[in-house]
Design a protein around this nucleic acid. Structure first.
Length: 279
DNA sequence: GTTCTTTCCTGCGAGC
DNA sequence: TGCTCGCAGGAAAGAA
């Protein structure tokens, strides 16, 4: 959705300037903020692309402007002169004098960087994210291959789902929802997944992502390119994540919260029984 | 080579 | 009322 907004509002335009208002926003651009701004001035934007949680703009000079929104990042298109957002981090102006592109990020987990484009399985991607796997919504995503890779891991299934080198775009929320749909407990050892279970949980992840994307689209308008996490989908459609104590939508058993990697995992104790026995 | 832990940051809500 | 505390999230880097 964010990608589509950028495609519609930024593609074909020439960047006039990039103003970095918070150095942390470009911390992953190693040469620094001045280099970042200097190399973007006068460059044309050719396309907007996405892989997993990364988003980037193809630039006419063969580079890419790479963005990760973290959890609080937004890309906004605003008329010049619109009041600065409280957490405005980077402002892009364009040679046509039209709307600005703004990177806004409260918690500064997100960031921007410039990268060279390299080939990854026939697709040009920024070199710094070439290790990131295709996401389940990518037309070239191969479910059978990903399912085999998932079963080849030696860890808990949720840890594997969150590993972006195996499958990308799945975060804590989508992982819990996919596991609920596939009726798998988050701690199930990957080596004990059947082939059908591995395919099911990955397919469920794809479904959840597609539904979230479709729901997020409802709040899109010309001036608000990002659809940030809080939109309707999260309140209405979650079966497991954040639902501790509420009845499971399948069986009515209260959803349980477990500590997991310094955060939480939510699951139905009845539909998703904890694995037993030795690994 | 693979897997696991720590750390970055800010706003919010709960509890005192 | 105002303070502190814990929590939320993704991924890089270092540790095991």
């Amino acid at each position: 959705m964010v990608r589509a907004g950028l495609e519609a509002h930024v593609t074909g335009r020439i960047i006039a300037s990039a103003e970095v208002l918070h150095p942390r926003a470009v911390r992953r651009h190693v040469p620094g903020a001045a280099d970042f701004a200097g190399r973007l001035a006068g460059v044309k934007v050719e396309a907007a692309r996405r892989r997993g949680k990364y988003l980037w703009l193809d630039l006419a000079d063969g580079q890419a402007l790479l963005a990760h929104l973290g959890m609080s990042g937004q890309m906004r298109v605003q008329p010049p002169g619109a009041p600065d957002e409280k957490h405005l981090r980077v402002r892009f102006t364009f040679a046509d004098g039209g709307p600005e592109l703004r990177f806004v990020d409260q918690r500064t987990f997100g960031g921007l960087a410039l990268a060279d484009l390299v080939d990854s399985g026939g697709t040009p991607v920024p070199d710094t994210i070439a290790h990131i796997a295709r996401d389940p919504m990518d037309p070239a995503f191969d479910l059978a291959v990903a399912a085999r890779a998932l079963r080849a891991r030696r860890t808990e299934v949720k840890r594997a789902l969150l590993d972006q080198t195996l499958v990308s775009g799945v975060g804590n929320i989508y992982a819990d929802e996919a596991l609920w749909r596939a009726r798998l407990h988050w701690a199930r050892p990957t080596e004990r997944l059947t082939a059908a279970q591995a395919r099911a949980v990955l397919g469920a992840a794809a479904d959840v992502m597609a539904e979230a994307l479709a729901a997020g689209g409802t709040s899109f308008d010309a001036l608000y390119v990002n659809v940030n996490g809080q939109s309707g989908y999260f309140d209405r459609s979650l079966n497991a994540y954040g639902q501790a104590g509420r009845p499971c939508d399948r069986c009515g058993t209260p959803i349980r919260r477990d500590p997991f990697m310094n955060r939480s995992s939510f699951s139905c104790p009845r539909c998703q029984p904890r694995p037993r026995g030795p690994r």
